[in-house]
Nucleic acid binder design. Structure first.
Lengths: 222, 222, 222, 222
DNA sequence: TATGAATGAGTTTTCATTCAT
DNA sequence: AATGAATGAAAACTCATTCAT
């Protein structure tokens, strides 16, 4: 149904304004996704949540997918930053264990990260401009390689090994998440003790898995 | 020009016939998904591929999602059977390594398994009857526990440990797949050497990761 | 979904058997309609309720509409019979008032009659064989004329006047019903005192309206 | 051959334009219904008839039913206005007879009114938002009460009596319509003299019935 | 820049009816 | 006569995106 026209938003002229508006849109999209993470919010809802008209959203993002890939890029960047800072204070004992703890805590605090990632596989690459995809992958690769090199140094790994370990770490994370995260209705269903074996808690499961994996990886390394 | 009226498919009367027709529909759906695994085929296309009328498909499956969950159930059952047979000839040396090889080979031969699984997370649980979902999860749990117990016995693990290891194994698998499987257009994009770090081959990466994980898991076990 | 096959119903061979089976179907349809009178039940549900296969229903009725027109014919016949018996004991005082009371009581006891009739207008004549429609109208006319003649005699009306009065009586009835019968959700809505004017009770409203109408009709008659 | 891309309809920007477009859609729906009044036209056909895209129709109406209830609201408002103006020039002799004549003429000129109303009973309340239904009923009640009060005054009736009489008048009208209005094919069928008793002409039948009813109502009133 | 009206492709599911068995 | 598998037309509605204003 048609709505009565609100007054136009002030125009974003300077590039700061524009960046701010772009950020508004992303924030709105993130918020909406957080509220119902089984479904990517529609462009209309994002616009509404950002108090913008639909058309305006398309001034800042060429497609809906571009919005979510931007969100994902933010998330990955943050995660990699966390990895970075976790390994920066070298010389500490229990470096690995502390890394795991921080990594898991970080994810726990951002429940939408892994959900968005899970949707990304099936949805995001569909309608995305190839050059944007390239840019996304490029950033990702760069961040990964940087963090990997830090690991190489800190943990005295063979060159490139750190990146590999990060990829595998994240793979284990995302896989566990998808295996153990359930929407509320399924969660209710699985309360039955019969399902206990497939219903361990994600966080502790992830911690243990990572310990096992890293232990094996470091051991076999030599 | 008038099309000649298509003649009805022969009727599936006996329960064997019916099972066969059901299998036909599943096969058609699998084939279609294999051809374009970024999108679940529509009910109409499945019917067409199975040379059936649309309505007929709905005689065998109540919803479209039911079709894909059935496919997934088939796949998981097969995978678990593979695990079973891999661990059945106990007393063999290198049991673990041979398990990994067979497991990976099995997956490699069924590229749609992991793709379907990746879509499942976001799509499948949406429009599925709760009791069907329950049945699916029940079968899955049962199969997992059975296989887990075999592992417990064969590898002399603590009770329940086998199931846990299988869940983590599969998590690592699915996570790596989603990190390393790219649609053809992205594949082309990533040919650029810049992307080498995020473009290892899935199969070898999985083998190595599993070796590392299992090594760590078995080591830490004691 | 396909059901497991029950055993075939015993065949109806004699014409008595056949009539009985036909009656079964009608009874099932009536029952179903009674349960939800906003919607004509589907052929499948009628068959199920009559413990017959879908195809069997079509041995007894050529179309779904034929079922409901048969129901309507039954209802009208019953109503006319009531009119008949109401006017048969002539010489009684208050003949008209007693007719009205019986007529209204009869309808009250058969809530599906007027509902079915209301759907009939929009649905029934659509897909009905012309000859069947003719037969239906013929029976209706005959019953109406018969009852009308009884009225003519009993009330000393001009020839044909009784039929006219019956038609108008039924028109008023059906019109009031449609104006005052509400489905439960609307009923709830109309509980608000604002709606009091459009929410009188059907039965008393009908009684009063008929009294007024007949009074006027008899008066103007002279 | 490729169809030339149809150009979008001019945009309705001002609220006048929007009201006009809404009216266009209603007019298209009315026209379509007039052409075949046994069936509510589909949303697609309405859009086509209004030279709009399907989606556009849904910008102006949330559901298909909303369109038809709007039509009905228009019709009722018009009818009530007619009643109003018919009773406004009080002091005239034969006020009642002139009311009846105008009322019947008005209906005669709008054959779709009673047809739409007949469908309304079975279809319209189904998929209609409860608040919209409420609004519709509210308007109806208000109009009815207003006109009823005018009757009370003009004809010196007890308070509220006018509304009651209007409801009954309309009930008689709608009931007679449904008893005497036939689609063309049935009309042909009923040409046979056998059917003469059930085939009086709607208009004259309505006039007579209303005279009788009002005569009785006014008489019994005292 | 911002707006939001217009577009139309796309999909699931129901159900009356037929007819081979 | 009875069955029920097979058919396929039909229809409402959503939503990403465009582009005139």
């Amino acid at each position: 149904m048609l709505k009565s026209p609100p007054r136009p938003k002030a125009r974003a002229i300077g590039s700061d304004d524009k960046a701010a508006r772009r950020a508004d849109i992303l924030a709105a999209a993130r918020q909406l996704f957080l509220e119902d993470s089984r479904q990517l919010p529609s462009a209309a809802r994002i616009a509404e949540a950002a108090s913008l008209a639909k058309g305006t959203v398309y001034l800042y993002f060429r497609t809906k997918e571009e919005i979510f890939i931007a969100l994902l890029a933010e998330d990955f960047a943050g995660l990699l930053a966390e990895v970075h800072s976790g390994f920066s204070d070298a010389g500490q004992p229990d470096l690995l264990e502390r890394f795991i703890q921080r990594y898991v805590a970080y994810l726990q605090a951002r429940p939408e990260l892994l959900r968005l990632d899970a949707m990304a596989y099936s949805v995001l690459e569909q309608n995305l401009d190839i050059s944007q995809l390239r840019q996304f992958k490029l950033n990702l690769t760069e961040g990964l390689v940087n963090a990997g090199q830090l690991l190489d140094t800190t943990l005295q790994l063979a060159a490139g090994r750190g990146t590999t370990l990060l990829i595998r770490t994240y793979a284990l994370t995302r896989g566990l998440w998808q295996s153990l995260d359930y929407p509320p209705n399924v969660r209710a269903l699985l309360a039955d003790p019969v399902f206990a074996p497939i219903r361990p808690e994600f966080q502790s499961e992830l911690v243990q898995s990572l310990r096992e994996y890293w232990h094996g990886a470091v051991t076999l390394q030599r």
